[in-house]
Design a protein around this nucleic acid. Structure first.
Lengths: 203, 203
DNA sequence: ACTTTTGTTAACCAAATGGTTAAACTTAAT
DNA sequence: ATTAAGTTTAACCATTTGGTTAACAAAAGT
């Protein structure tokens, strides 16, 4: 019999762990709470994942592997800069509205342990900026867009798309906007953000 | 004799607590580590701040009260939108380069406990967007800038300025940039970001 | 001088927490 | 049917952790 043939329990654990880790972070999460949420005995967590650290890493990798393809879309696609920006902002914001916990979880835990990224680079199809850099240089040279550093443009695109999800409690407070209104603001950003970026870089 | 006349110890504690909380978060921080860093007995922490929670709140309030005036600058100043954006991005990035832990700490802990913001609103000169909204509406009406929602513009400004500090490990990995180069990128953003925003909104 | 308040320490404590163990149960191959 | 491997449980354990206590020291008020 192969190890862990029946993966039902294993998946229940991973789902429960996802919820708890994303809500409370590595330090705040409790193994007992994960077990309860998965409707299993606490010992099972260790049977399947050995330790809290390894369970956490499994959750993290899964989260990251959801996010990575989204970024590869803008970095490695063949369309024009303008089309990419339009498509990326629309797709990305739609995606995150469905997984609002994701960016914050990844950023938070990466700050807690920055060299964690090395483990991820080995296991996931890690986004790479090289192609995007060439493209930006080209479009600057041909005069399609204003002179701009590819890294800076990439940072701007990420910032405008991700930050409103990461800092939502803060922004809600500053703008005196309730949850429902904020949701509408985010929805509007699907178009708003790409217009903003394209306006900023087109000649 | 007034309570806590000699505030030397109290300040040592707050400084140590700041460092530990900012590095490890509320859950990850250990009272013993704070005591060690402050060179005092662990019981003193409770003597001066009663509990971990209250010590944490003291640290948080202090951090927030550093950040708030920066935001009030852009929200309540009397200069033109363009000047504000130029000044704010320059000042804010300079400020955060000196306190790189700050935005992440605040965002992280606010996500962990969103209704924490209510406690802050009572104790700090909390930034308010009303005046900024009027100004944006005006400048749109007079045709100085492209039609844009004040909240969206404000979110964009915050995103472009804050996110690169919050997500630095992630961005460094995506852009294949080391610490030194990233520092230079951030330095360049003092001008880069304001150009980007102004380009995006000016007619 | 002496009494009271404030500051500081070491030792202690109960609760929580990640993790282990050993035994029981289930499943499937022989 | 027997065996062996995988799965699940309850009880247990060592350690860590925030917090307390009681005694002592230093200042300050009288």
């Amino acid at each position: 019999m192969a190890k862990h043939k029946d993966n039902k329990t294993e998946e229940q654990i991973l789902e429960a762990a996802q919820k708890v880790f994303q809500a409370k972070g590595m330090e705040g999460a409790r193994m007992q709470e994960i077990a309860d949420k998965a409707n299993i005995n606490k010992a099972m967590l260790h049977y399947y994942y050995r330790s809290k650290q390894l369970l956490f890493e499994a959750v993290f990798k899964k989260a990251f592997s959801l996010l990575a393809p989204q970024l590869n879309a803008i970095l490695n696609d063949d369309s024009s800069i303008e089309d990419k920006i339009k498509e990326f902002t629309h797709n990305y914001i739609s995606f995150i509205i469905k997984h609002p916990y994701l960016p914050n979880f990844i950023i938070q835990e990466l700050n807690r342990n920055p060299n964690f990224i090395d483990k991820i680079k080995k296991n996931v199809d890690f986004p790479n900026i090289d192609k995007f850099k060439l493209q930006v240089k080209n479009e600057v040279k041909t005069g399609n867009i204003v002179p701009i550093n590819a890294e800076q443009l990439f940072i701007n695109i990420l910032s405008l798309n991700i930050f409103p999800f990461v800092a939502s409690p803060l922004i809600k407070a500053f703008t005196n906007v309730d949850d429902k209104e904020y949701k509408m603001l985010l929805e509007a950003r699907k178009k708003e953000v790409s217009d903003f970026i394209i306006n900023a870089i087109k000649k």
